[in-house]
């Protein structure tokens, strides 16, 4: 399968931040969610993939183009929208659409018309009068209607009120499934990522903590509540990522869960009361706190 992008040994240094040795790839047609707190390295990684920033070390290939050398060829086939990107306030959305149409030969005017209706935007309205949610939708329209093979979205839902956030996510969900484009979508909100992504990557303090498909993440992690006495031996079990004690009740966060684990815990004198799947947010927080790969 062709890779939408692949990076190997990727590093980037800033005075107060460093992206460390990232190895990552995405197959064409898939949606990857980048999860991380502010300052995790999501924007740096996306800027490098967008050909706007160059790495200090490692290799980057986007849609078969080596970056930064072939940045123009790659940029012609990708769309990039970030939370800190703004459009010209004194110009209409129509003006922006005409500008992008002239920059991208693959611009699809009829699809742009469909997106205008889907996003409930008025093309002739000045950007000055747009709400933040409408500006995000306008940026998405400008990116989607150029029919990119790879769409890079850096925190598109940040700063939106709850209603606008749901609207943007629903709209994104509809249009992202419509076609075989690849998408990389960053957020510090795990609910957004969980809703849209096929593959999930955790970044923290410039390091990649984990990357695999969403189902595997959810399947591998469990929250187990047990009754019994804690034995120090359990601390060395590689499956136990976190533990919290409350009297004789133990809450275990389990990575690499397997069906025989309950029996093994029983062998250690613990009675397993409940086993629940974990939310992505819980998995992410546990992974960050454990400070190691998930």
């Amino acid at each position: 399968m062709t890779a939408a992008f692949s990076v190997s040994g990727l590093g980037k240094r800033y005075p107060h931040f460093e992206l460390h040795d990232i190895d990552l790839a995405l197959a064409e047609g898939e949606i990857m969610g980048l999860v991380g707190v502010n300052g995790a390295g999501k924007t740096t990684l996306l800027r490098i993939l967008a050909g706007i920033s160059s790495p200090d070390s490692g290799t980057v290939e986007v849609l078969g183009h080596s970056l930064p050398r072939e940045q123009v060829a790659a940029k012609r086939q990708l769309g990039f929208a970030s939370e800190d990107m703004r459009l010209y306030r004194k110009r209409s959305l129509r003006w922006h659409m005409d500008l992008i149409a002239r920059a991208y030969p693959d611009w699809d005017e009829s699809y742009a018309g469909i997106l205008l209706k889907r996003f409930a935007l008025r093309a002739e309205q000045l950007l000055d009068g747009f709400s933040h949610g409408q500006r995000v939708k306008a940026l998405l329209l400008l990116n989607l209607a150029r029919r990119p093979r790879l769409l890079l979205l850096d925190e598109p839902t940040t700063g939106l009120d709850p209603v606008a956030r749901v609207e943007v996510l629903e709209a994104l969900s509809d249009v992202l499934r419509d076609g075989d484009r690849s998408v990389v979508f960053s957020s510090h909100n795990t609910h957004d990522i969980e809703q849209l992504a096929d593959t999930i990557t955790f970044l923290h303090e410039g390091r990649m903590l984990a990357s695999c498909d969403k189902e595997s993440f959810i399947d591998r992690w469990r929250r187990m509540v047990c009754q019994g006495d804690w034995t120090p031996d359990l601390a060395h079990w590689p499956q136990i990522a976190a533990l919290r004690r409350s009297g004789s009740v133990l809450e275990l966060k389990i990575r690499d869960f397997s069906d025989d684990l309950a029996g093994r815990l029983k062998g250690q004198g613990l009675d397993v009361r409940t086993v629940h799947p974990m939310s992505l947010e819980d998995i992410f927080i546990t992974t960050v706190r454990a400070g190691e790969t998930a």
Partner: peptide, 17 residues
């Protein structure tokens, strides 16, 4: 200042262009 630069940088241009 108004962060429209990020929009222009995302177009298929190099810093030289």
């Amino acid at each position: 200042k108004e962060r429209t630069l990020a929009f222009v940088m995302s177009l298929p241009v190099t810093p030289m262009d």
